[in-house]
């Protein structure tokens, strides 16, 4: 497990998201209206929609493809839908962001 620097909180728009690419998959890093940051896999549990493109509200994001609402804190689908995405630990030190990911996970599944 490694804390990996990914950039500064100001790189992410308020109530928005940016992506962090790894060889295996993409992580979506969110910044909420309250300036909290969250990192989850950029892949909707429904049909793999890119969650980083959704509308961020409270600590949730609405998937752009079919409007599932995903909790940024738990990665769980909210409401009647069922499913979850992987969440990642994220650290915010005076705006400098880093996430915790296991090295083997980053290797493309070839």
């Amino acid at each position: 497990m490694n804390w990996t620097d990914i950039g500064h909180i100001d790189d992410i728009p308020l109530r928005g998201a940016r992506c962090v690419k790894t060889p295996g998959f993409t992580i979506a890093v969110f910044r909420t209206g309250e300036n909290e940051v969250f990192a989850i896999e950029n892949r909707c549990p429904h049909k793999a929609g890119p969650l980083s493109e959704g509308i961020v509200h409270g600590a949730s994001v609405t998937c752009p493809l079919h409007n599932w609402v995903i909790s940024l804190e738990s990665g769980q689908a909210l409401g009647a839908d069922e499913g979850a995405v992987q969440t990642f630990d994220i650290r915010n030190e005076n705006g400098a962001l880093s996430i915790l990911i296991a090295t083997p996970m980053m290797v493309a599944a070839e």
Partner: peptide
């Protein structure tokens, strides 16, 4: 600009 670029790419070195 931020919309069209990833914030970071990590892990490519190791991979």
């Amino acid at each position: 600009k931020h919309e069209f670029k990833p914030m970071a790419s990590v892990g490519y070195g190791e991979a």
